[in-house]
Nucleic acid binder design. Structure first.
Lengths: 122, 122
DNA sequence: CATACATATGAATGATTGTTCATATATTCA
DNA sequence: TGAATATATGAACAATCATTCATATGTATG
C-alpha cells in the first residue's frame, strides 16, 4: 500500500522553513513510539491513579485498604487497578481472599518527581 | 468547617493494616499537589501534544510548520498549543504575522525519556 | 453447605476532551 | 483601503473515561 501524504493547509513559510521542518521530521521518533508514550502518560493523568501509585510506592496494599486510604469505593479502586495493571505499572499477589497490589517499575517515582519539579516552577 | 471523614466500605483488614494505612497516609503529598501532577500528565497524555513538544525540543517552529510536520490542520494545532501554553510548557514569540513557539521547560525531555524507558521494558 | 467477605466486572451515566468547521483578529503588502 | 495570509477562537460533535450500581466470582469459616 502506498503511503500518500495528505495535502495540508500549507502556508508560505514552506520555502523558508522547509529545511527545519524536514530536519525535525528526521529526528522524530516513530509514530508508534510517541503513541505508546502518550498512552503511558494518559494513565498518570488521573489523580486517583496518581494517588494509588504514590501509595503503592510506600507499601504493598490490598484493595480495600487503598479504598479506605483514598476515601473511595472498592469498585472504583478495583477498576483503576485494572488500568494500572494493563499498563504494567502494578502487579498483584493473592493471599486467601485478599489481593495485595504493589508497584512494578522504579521509574514511576522518578517520573513523578520530575513532574513535581515542573509544577513547582510556576 | 469541620472535616468529616465519610464512612467508607471498610473491610476487616482494618485491624491488621491500620498502621500501614496510617503510615502511608502520613507520607502522601497534599491532595492539591497530586491533583496538579495529574493535570500535568494529562497534558502529556495525548499523542498530538507529545509530538508537538518533541518537535519543539528540536527547534522553535511556527504554527503552520507544526501543522505541516504533523499532517494536521492549523486549527487543531492552535488549540493544542493553547493547552500547552496554559500548562506553562511552551512560550511564543511573534514576528509579524508569524507566531513562533518554543519549549520552556528542560524537564520535559527528561520526563519523556524516563517514560520511554518504561515502555521499552515490556 | 451456607454465610460472610474481598475483589472483579459489566452496564449505565455524566463529564471531559480532541477535532472540525466557520469565522474573527491581526498583520503585511500592493 | 482592500486583499491575502497567519493565527486564534467559539460552537458542535463524536469519542473517551471515571465513577456508581448491581451483581458475579472466589475464598475462608462455622
Amino acid at each position: 500500500m502506498v503511503e500518500e501524504r495528505q495535502e495540508m493547509d500549507r502556508c508560505d513559510c514552506e520555502v523558508i522553513h522547509e529545511d527545519i521542518v524536514n530536519l525535525v521530521r528526521s529526528k522524530m521518533p516513530l509514530e508508534e513510539t510517541l503513541y505508546d508514550l502518550a498512552e503511558l502518560f494518559k494513565v498518570f493523568g488521573d489523580s486517583t491513579r496518581i494517588k494509588i501509585l504514590w501509595a503503592l510506592d510506600e507499601a504493598e496494599m490490598c484493595v480495600c485498604d487503598i479504598a479506605w486510604l483514598l476515601n473511595m469505593t472498592q469498585s472504583a479502586i478495583s477498576h483503576q487497578l485494572r488500568v494500572l495493571k494493563q499498563a504494567n505499572l502494578v502487579r498483584n499477589r493473592k493471599e486467601g481472599k485478599i489481593v495485595f497490589y504493589s508497584l512494578i517499575d522504579e521509574h514511576v517515582k522518578q517520573i513523578f518527581n520530575q513532574g513535581l519539579e515542573h509544577t513547582r516552577e510556576l
